[in-house]
Amino acid sequence: MDPEALNELVTLHQASAYRVALGILGSEADAQDATQDGMLRALRGLAGFRGDASFRTWLLAIVANEARSLIRRSARRREAPLDEDVAGEAPGRGVAEGVVLQAEEARVRAMLARLPEKQRLAVQLRVDEGLSFREVGEVIGSTEGAARVNYHHGIRRLREWLE
């Protein structure tokens, strides 16, 4: 394949791939490794892309598998379930409004990281990447209906933690 076209594919999809890997691994360094390995695997195996899913969905599924296999290989595990202290943390007082907003956003993102994997990925893929529930299901290995349920359960739990 044309090297320039490959570079374009990398540029176009690397952020989504990285977020999926980060969502599974929780470590930036591991996520970079999984993103690179997954994208190389996908782009070198383009012949295996059958076109019955969108290229992005196919790519993200490969990166997700790469991230899971990295966990298996290194026995790395994500952090413990939700810590009540972290869930109850409030942004600091007396700081500028923009900083408060950023702190709140970071807190929401930190809570997302504490959802069970399928709920977390369903929320991420639907919100961050704009995938349909059918596509979310293809990436996380479930049906469209199960992807929808995982998404709504994840959102409901996040709202409970934030209240």
């Binding site: 570079n7 540029t11 690397q14 956003e105 970071a106 993102r109 919100v127 961050d128």
Partner: peptide, 15 residues
């Protein structure tokens, strides 16, 4: 909106 605003970006130089 908070989730969208806090989306991680790809690390510099990764591509």
């Amino acid at each position: 909106r908070a989730l969208v605003a806090s989306r991680p970006t790809a690390p510099a130089g990764m591509s």
